[in-house]
Design a protein around this nucleic acid. Sequence first.
DNA 1: GTTGCATGCAGAT
DNA 2: TGCATGCAAC
Length: 423
Amino acid sequence: MGIQGLLPFLKNILTPSHIRNYRGCTVAIDAYCWLHKGAFACAEKLAAGEKTDMYVYYCMKYINMLLSYDIKPILVLDGCHLPSKKNVEKKRRERRELNRKKAAQLLRDGKRKEARDALVQCIDITPQMALELMNACRDKGVDCITAPYEADAQLAYLSQTGIAQVIITEDSDLILFGCHTIMFKMDTSGAGMLIQNKDLNKAMKLQDAHYTFDKFRYMCMLSGCDYHANLPGIGLSKACKAMKLTRQIDVRLILKKIPMLLNIRNLTVSAEYIEGFIRADNTFLYQLVFDPLSRKLTPLNPYPPGVKAEDMHYAGPPMSPDHAFQLALGNMDIQGNRIANFDPAPRSQSWINDTEKTPYLLSIWDPNYKPRGQVPEGEEPTRPSTKGKEVLLQAMGISKPKANEQRRKSEPPLKPIKKGWFR
DNA sequence: GTTGCATGCAGAT
DNA sequence: TGCATGCAAC
Ligand SMILES: [Mn+2]
């Protein structure tokens, strides 16, 4: 459910943009956003259990648009359920169940229109539906990766490692996870609203010297997040005020001072609240993700000294490397059943000609793949200006290059990757 | 002004 | 997977 009211809170730094500004770049997609919207196009059939692939076509409409702008899409899907999110998932299940019953009653009353509206609210995206979309994408040479846990953290990892220059989502949580550049509300034409991590201090109206990304994240968490409730009566505005008033950096001390900072007498911050807050913070910082290059599980950010994955089961219980890899490829469902036999190896044959100069256009599973890196200062890139569509498609193993295509010289390297440089 | 909660909604004909 | 909006209450 993200952070309630965060996007309106950030309206000052949300800028209209178009995905064509990222020609030649890689864009990672929060696939379940599209899947859920696409499922509305065929809600009756899905609810009735009939076969339909209308939701696949809905998503491919976006994919094809991205390809038409010479953009390399990476589809990112949600994986296993996160212990930290137990409450939220329970709420969602109850909501779907409520709507299922409501639909049945309305149908008995003969109110077909209302019944359909309720029915629409109880459909769920199954792993089989996600697999159908992955197959359709792979037929077009589009990379897919299933996160070990939340797609949120996986997308942030792709952003921070310079694999993806833009993240496409509808979920405000992605901002807290530390993505550099996010496009919200992108329509089928490619228009959307862009937000950049480097602008967050402006939204809080804090000077650079006093701003830290930690403060921003604490502000959001104080107003309530999927992993932890807010303090009663505290929303984004008051949380922002509190974070502006303190120069403290210790989370525990900040939390204890909240009633004083906001001058709220009958507000107590229990020890349980503080410990829950820290677990939630660790879930944002250290949730397990899958690194496609090393093909291993890794925390989104490096653990502090002395901390191990076993210490943070709530941020994703560790799983075996092979399990994580097969899950990432979409070959294994979250229960551990084998559901496909996709082998990324053959794709490395698409390593030809100009892809030596653009290894970031290869499949992320290709041994020769290299991330493109960060766009300097988070600006919308103007390079490469006219790299032909043929190069991208060719690199992705789709079409042949034109015989007399004019070639640009190799581009200067972009800013090297430096994880966490913005903190 | 800010929060809390209930309600409606996402596509396509 | 999520957001927007309206309105009552503090
Ligand atoms: Mn989320």
